[in-house]
């Protein structure tokens, strides 16, 4: 018995603290959020019994549905633009000379690791009414009065694309780089034209990368509430702002918890879809 304990001790010392940490600070809080979503709010902004599904039912109302569809649309637009910009870029990088590729990738990663509030603040400086772009355009006489760029829906979209582009590029790069060049040569030898090679060979073979890139762009885009605040002025609500408000200003925790679970559900469905498509690809 003592011998067994001695063997087990190092294991508990090594894994125990980390697991305990995750149990207390991840599993317990998440369970708590699930629990709160079935309660109702009391007058002081806290939560109270009895158990109810009211928060979930209240999600089904017109103003929330507008916010959901607006958020999903923004995320979809963000994903499509990121793919359209990122695909050719990833293709160029993947075909660059091998010795330069590491540096080119590092240059993509670097902005991604610099705090995003600082970077979005840079966009703020550029786009403002009296900002860099407007003053440059006015001084060279292209426009006579400043363009309204900041605090528009377009600015929010720009901020989202900017923030998430590296998330799209990296999986795209990984799948394009793996592409077997001899297949392209074979297609070309058999007389396929360049557009043909792209639509019939390159595009289908890099589909897993396109899919991974889309998921990795779409999921985080749903929660980035501060970008719509910095670039959109906070006047247009998205699902992230809605959740945030339930916990900080509106103080309706059960509703906020139900919204959070909805967000987790969307994420899980997308990830399930992703692994399913992934396993199909493996089988093919």
């Amino acid at each position: 018995m003592k011998h067994k304990w001695n063997n087990r001790l190092p294991m508990f010392v090594m894994i125990g603290p980390a697991f305990l940490w995750m149990a207390i600070f991840v599993l317990a809080p998440l369970c708590y959020v699930v629990g709160i979503s079935f309660l109702s709010k009391d007058s002081s902004g806290g939560v109270m019994f009895p158990l109810t599904l009211a928060s979930y039912f209240s999600l089904w109302n017109e103003s929330f549905l507008t916010i959901f569809s607006r958020s999903l649309l923004l995320s979809l637009q963000t994903t499509i633009i990121c793919l359209a910009v990122g695909y050719p870029f990833a293709y160029v990088i993947a075909n660059a000379p091998k010795k330069h590729r590491g540096l080119l990738l590092l240059l993509i990663m670097l902005p991604f690791w610099i705090n995003s509030v600082i970077r979005i603040y840079g966009w703020n400086t550029l786009l403002r009414q009296e900002g860099v772009i407007n003053s440059v355009l006015m001084s060279i006489g292209i426009i006579s009065s400043p363009l309204e760029m900041l605090y528009t829906d377009g600015a929010v979209l720009l901020g989202m694309v900017y923030e998430l582009l590296p998330f799209t590029i990296l999986p795209l790069y990984a799948s394009i780089e793996k592409l077997d060049r001899s297949l392209l040569e074979a297609a070309s030898d058999l007389g396929a034209t360049k557009p043909h090679i792209f639509t019939r060979v390159i595009f289908p073979l890099t589909m897993p990368g396109i899919f991974a890139g889309s998921i990795q762009t779409f999921i985080p885009s749903l929660g980035l509430f501060y970008i719509s605040e910095m670039m959109g002025g906070g006047s247009t609500m998205y699902i992230g702002n809605l959740i945030k408000n339930q916990f900080l200003s509106a103080r309706n925790w059960p509703l906020g918890a139900a919204l959070s679970l909805l967000l987790i559900l969307i994420t899980l469905v997308l990830m399930k879809l992703y692994t399913k498509v992934g396993s199909l690809e493996d089988m093919a």
């Binding site: 599993l27 708590y32 994420t267």
Partner: peptide, 18 residues
């Protein structure tokens, strides 16, 4: 993998509430 998989905003809220 849980903190990696769930949306950041939900993670933040879960901690706040906890």
């Amino acid at each position: 993998y849980i903190p990696i998989a769930i949306p950041e905003i939900v993670f933040g809220i879960a901690m706040l509430v906890f």
